[in-house]
Amino acid sequence: MNLRLVLLLALALCVAVPLSLLAGRVWINPFSPELHSASTILVELRMPRAVLALVLGAGLGAAGAAMQGYLRNPLADPGLFGIAPGAALGAVLSFWTGYASAPWMLPVFALIGAGGAMTLLALIAGRGGGVALFTLAGLMVSSLAGALMSLAISLTPSPFAMSEIVTWMMGSLADRSWREVWIAAPLTLAGIGVLLHAGRDLDAMTLGEMAARSLGVEPLRLQALMILGAGLIVGSGVAVAGIIGFVGLMVPHLVRPMTDRKPSSLIVPSALAGALLLLFADCLCRIMPLAGGELRLGIALSLIGAPFFLRLLLKMRQGMVA
């Protein structure tokens, strides 16, 4: 059953990727490529953007599935644990210090921020490896990074830098090149690998922490795997594209009823569905007519995500959520 779902999603991606390359402000007709610049647009602009959408979407989908499994909570989102705000803080500091204009510096700053948040999370939550402490530590790191980020923004030396920060924070894949792909892809894939490795432990967590331990789960090891896996994915994603929310929350939800509902069965299908969702949302941003530029991806996803979240809450209120 699971294999069929994976094949179906892979097939959908095979259809969606070529189509997405054709869509945009300039539509490319594959049968009569009249534009001279068509190949340049495809190879230098749209392909890296599509690949980045696939990589980030896959990462967020997988991280969402794993986090929900780890916390045994369908409302968990990989962005909740302070890693995304940590990375964003790093990025803001690169704008603040002016290093952002140098080619590799923004992502490097963001990755350092993500790494710092992961370390802090591990230090605070560590030892016992309990899930409740982990969640609280994540909230603490998250609000600390958020506060520092606001502080940095309020102290920004120039209005120009401030507007750059604000635009960047909305999350977007516009004007990304192969360079961003090379930063994000290896880290995200490594992160997905780490989460897949934790699959069996996540399955055991279905029975609660005590029973999971009696089934041989080492809480500290599992926690470390979660911080590392989700950290690599979220950190590298924020480093190249800003903050993109809701994918990690929505996708596992949509996919779960189509699987046997074990966390490990959910990771790969969620990755594929996440890739599909981000690709679709990014295309939507590109073709949406909007004065003065294009719709930001982060905003688009929040606009899709908020009603989805509301629907989920209403369903939960009726006690129907599964």
């Binding site: 967590m205 279905t206 029975l207 009696s214 509902r261 599964a322």
Partner: peptide, 16 residues
């Protein structure tokens, strides 16, 4: 080990 208050976080089937 069967805990006193066992929990099942996800709505899996009995077989799973």
């Amino acid at each position: 080990y069967l805990p006193q208050t066992p929990e099942v976080a996800w709505d899996v089937s009995v077989e799973v």
